[in-house]
Amino acid sequence: METFLQTTINGLASGSIYALGAIGLSLVYAILKLVNFAHGDFMTLGGYVAFVVNVSLGAPLVVAAAAAVAAIAVVGLITEAVIWRPMRNRGAGVMQLLLLSIGLAFVIRNLILFGWGGQEKRLDIDNTRTFDLGIVRISLIQVIVISIAAVVLVAVGVMLRSTYVGKSMRALSDSFDLAEVSGIDTRRVVTYTWVLGGGLAGLAGVLAGIFTTLRPDTGFLLLLGIFAAVILGGIGNPFGALVGGIALGLVQEWSTNWITPTYKEAIGFVVLILVLLFRPNGVLGHATRTG
């Protein structure tokens, strides 16, 4: 029971990071039909922005996190203006955009490597403090990660459900063309999508940096798990992505109760494949026919 609760806490923490990454990826995927392989590297970049503000410039971590969120939202908007919109206007296919994003991922990751080198970076936070809650121990960083993620995820959920922009986003993810003819300002919604998706990616990168350490491939290594979360939740469903992310974190950590932790990552992928075998559209996805 103790180990179960302990692994649950660990799973919630890592699942929160997956979820934050997954919501942004899912929104961009659903609204812009972009399978963005650079999303993980957006996260990494967020982590490094926070590192610069927090460690190099000595500002508090909160300021650093805000800077990272803002910076990656801007990066998202820049890529939209310079790459994705022009490519869409030229009628680029889904695979074309996907492959392009792989190129972008290479560029971002290796520019980070070029700028900061390959050694691990740490944000300025006490990662040794833990609270003993009787049956389980929870570390300060787990408290931070879980509570920030919880607040942000609830806020995003409310925003998607009840604000005009949120509803427009969901309309666009159902059908871009239909939303456009029904008078939604699609361009504005696309802007918000990048601000939200990029911002969440930046935040996820900071939390990943708090949770472990930062390396140029931190985000890329999380990306496959994030994809798994998105697919588990059903593509185009941001709430599904949230649930998928938390579920993935939990399953990975719970598996360590029976299997060596070195298989943790593999367990997540096995779950992904098993789910797709039985539900080819994800757990919460609705069955749609393509083509």
Binding site: A92, Q96, L99, V107, N110, L113
Partner: peptide, 24 residues
């Protein structure tokens, strides 16, 4: 040398992007 290593992959990334954008 590690900077050169990074730049190699930046170049590969740019090749992928450039090709997909201008000569898919």
């Amino acid at each position: 040398e590690d900077k050169v290593a990074a730049l190699r992959f930046v170049v590969i990334g740019l090749i992928i992007m450039g090709m997909m954008a201008f000569r898919p």
